[in-house]
C-alpha cells in the first residue's frame, strides 16, 4: 500500500486490519499521533486528511491510500514550530502533552471548517452565511478532543489567538 504522509510518499506492507493510527505509529514511527481510546471517543489520534480532521483510530489504513495525510510531525517546517504550536506553549495549552498533537491537528482542521462555512450545533442560525466565531463555537467544535489534564482554557486561548493566522493546509475535498 502507498501513502502520502506529510508530503512524503511511503510504502508499507500491512495487515488489512491495520488502522491508520497504528500504521503511523507502529509502521512509520510517527508516534506523534496518539492512541487514547482506539474507539473514537477521545480525539488524541486526530490527523488531517486532505485538510479535514478525522480520528485515525477508526480509519482502516487501506481506505486512505493515496490521500494527503498530515500529522503533527508535518506541521513543523524546517524544525520551526507552527504558530499554533508556539501558541500552545505560550498559553500552556497542555500539561502531560499526550492529547496535544490531536488538539493541534483538530484545531487546524476546525479552522479549515470555519473557512468553508461548516456550521456547528451551537451556531444560532445554521443557514446564515457567516459564522460568528466565539468562545462557545470554538469549545463546541473542539469537544471531540478530550484533555484529562484539563488544559482546556489554555487550548482555547492558544487557538483564539492564532485562528486568524493559521496557515491552512490545502483543502482538497472540503465539504
Amino acid at each position: 500500500m502507498q501513502f502520502v504522509i506529510n508530503g512524503r510518499s511511503l510504502d508499507a506492507d500491512v495487515d488489512l486490519r491495520t488502522s491508520l493510527l497504528d500504521l503511523l505509529r507502529d509502521h512509520f514511527g510517527l508516534s506523534g499521533t496518539k492512541k487514547g481510546c482506539n474507539q473514537g471517543a477521545c480525539g488524541a489520534c486526530t490527523v488531517l486528511v486532505d485538510g479535514n480532521r478525522i480520528n485515525s483510530c477508526l480509519a482502516l489504513a487501506v481506505q486512505y491510500q493515496g490521500r494527503k495525510i498530515t500529522t503533527v510531525e508535518g506541521l513543523t517546517s524546517n524544525g520551526a514550530l507552527h504558530p499554533l504550536q508556539e501558541a500552545f506553549v505560550a498559553h500552556d495549552g497542555f500539561q502531560c502533552g499526550y492529547c496535544t498533537p490531536g488538539q493541534i491537528c483538530s484545531a487546524i482542521g476546525m479552522a479549515n471548517e470555519l473557512r468553508t462555512g461548516v456550521p456547528s450545533y451551537v451556531t444560532a442560525d445554521v443557514a446564515a452565511e457567516a459564522i460568528t466565531v466565539d468562545f462557545d463555537e470554538i469549545r463546541e467544535r473542539m469537544s471531540g478532543n478530550i484533555c484529562r489534564c484539563g488544559a482546556y482554557n489554555g487550548i482555547i486561548e492558544a487557538i483564539s489567538e492564532t485562528l486568524g493566522t493559521i496557515p491552512l493546509p490545502e483543502a482538497k475535498d472540503a465539504p
Partner: peptide
Amino acid sequence: FPLLAQAILAGASAQIRNM
C-alpha cells in the same frame, strides 16, 4: 432543511462527522 443540519451537528464529534 435546517432541522437535518442541526441534528447531524448534534451527533458525535467533528472528526467523526467528517468520516
